[in-house]
Design a binder for these strands. Structure first.
Length: 359
DNA sequence: TGTCATT
């Protein structure tokens, strides 16, 4: 049975809007389904959670019409949120009541009704800095709420001194124009009683993190490992590469890389049509393709990754392959990632050789 | 500059 409701598109409240019906999909006059009472957005999912686990968790509540864990288009990495559309609005309600706030690994998931998708709700997230250290989340919300409906807010706190505000925060408005008004009204303004003006601007989108940002992150990770007294030449070389790649100081010639990476008498396979094949050794049994994308993607064009798995256990056999289009980028990736510590393992990364070299 | 909030 399908019920037709008359026009009512504006949605303002936190919960689902529109005519309340006990069950089943609601079809509006334009023929599109109104899933405002069945469709949920789930935030702060653990990075590892798969689509299957996601579906399994939310499927335990009731029949799912559809669900999707949102992933990065390029790397396949989870973006940490997803959507669940239940067949029955009662199950959506039940999911919020029973799963919102559930602790999974290091995350506390948030389950709420999804707002109808529209262009007007995109890019509505603000980055705020220069906040008085005494200002809490509620104070910040109060300051911003005059410009519109706030979807999320956060004040960043110092990690070591546990709980001291860094004077930096985020405010997501329901609508982009609300965010724009808040910038106009609050950027450069001093909050009541504050001595310094605050900066209010649009926040970076974490899914649009550049290769450069990833490299910087990689470099920072690498740099922390090199604080000991002993620095091998190869480690210095690796750090230099990362710096150069990040800041574009210079590029390494193939000759330099060849002399670095090629062991005596080892032949490279060369660009066999698809590109340069890279051998990655010492992956954990749990390794998957996404980790290879994540590791190699920042260095340039990656056309293919493969984790070699045991046929029966489906666990990684400890190695995989990555294909990169450009020699320079492949060489840079090898020079940088060979010896890279992934968890408790040290990776061995090299061009794939024509034959297995002896141990 | 986030526990990646709109498929």
């Amino acid at each position: 049975m399908v019920t037709i409701i008359s026009t009512m598109e504006t949605q303002v409240s936190n919960g689902p809007s529109g005519t309340s019906l006990p069950n089943g999909p609601v079809i509006s006059s334009n023929g599109s389904t109104d899933d405002s009472k069945t469709n949920l957005i789930v935030n702060y999912l653990p990075q590892n959670m798969t689509q299957e686990e996601f579906k399994s968790l939310f499927g335990s509540i009731g029949e799912i019409e559809s669900c999707k864990l949102v992933r990065d288009k390029i790397t396949g990495q989870s973006l940490g949120y997803g959507f669940v559309n239940y067949a029955d609005p009662n199950d959506a309600d039940k999911a919020i009541n029973t799963l919102n706030g559930l602790k999974l690994q290091t995350k506390t998931i948030k389950v709420s009704y999804a707002r109808p998708s529209s262009a007007s709700i995109r890019d509505a997230n603000l980055y705020v800095s220069g906040l008085p250290k005494t200002m809490g989340q509620k104070d910040m919300e109060q300051l911003f709420s005059q410009y519109g409906r706030i979807i999320t807010s956060r004040i960043l706190v110092d990690q070591v001194t546990a709980g001291i505000s860094r004077g930096v925060g985020f405010i997501r408005f329901d609508k982009r124009n609300e965010a724009e008004e808040a910038i106009k009204g609050l950027n450069g303004q001093k909050p009541l009683g504050a001595s310094e003006p605050i900066t209010v601007k649009f926040a970076n989108n974490p899914s649009q993190k550049t290769g450069q940002a990833l490299l910087t992150q990689l470099y920072q990770t690498a740099a922390r490992r090199y604080t000991g007294p002993l620095h091998h030449q190869t480690q210095r070389f690796r750090l230099d590469n990362l710096l150069n790649a990040t800041y574009g100081v210079k590029r390494f010639s193939p000759i330099t890389i060849d002399s670095m990476t090629s062991l005596a008498g080892v032949n490279l396979t060369g660009p066999t049509g698809a590109g340069w094949c890279i051998f990655v050794y010492n992956l954990s049994p749990e390794a998957d393709e996404s980790v290879l994308w994540q590791l190699f993607g920042p260095f340039g064009a990656v056309t293919n990754v493969k984790v070699i798995r045991d046929f029966t256990t489906n666990k990684c056999k400890g190695f995989g392959f990555v294909t990169m289009t450009n020699y320079d980028e492949a060489a840079m990736a090898i020079a940088s990632l060979n010896g890279y510590r992934l968890g408790d393992r040290v990776l061995q990364v090299s061009f794939k050789t024509s034959k297995q070299h002896k141990a």
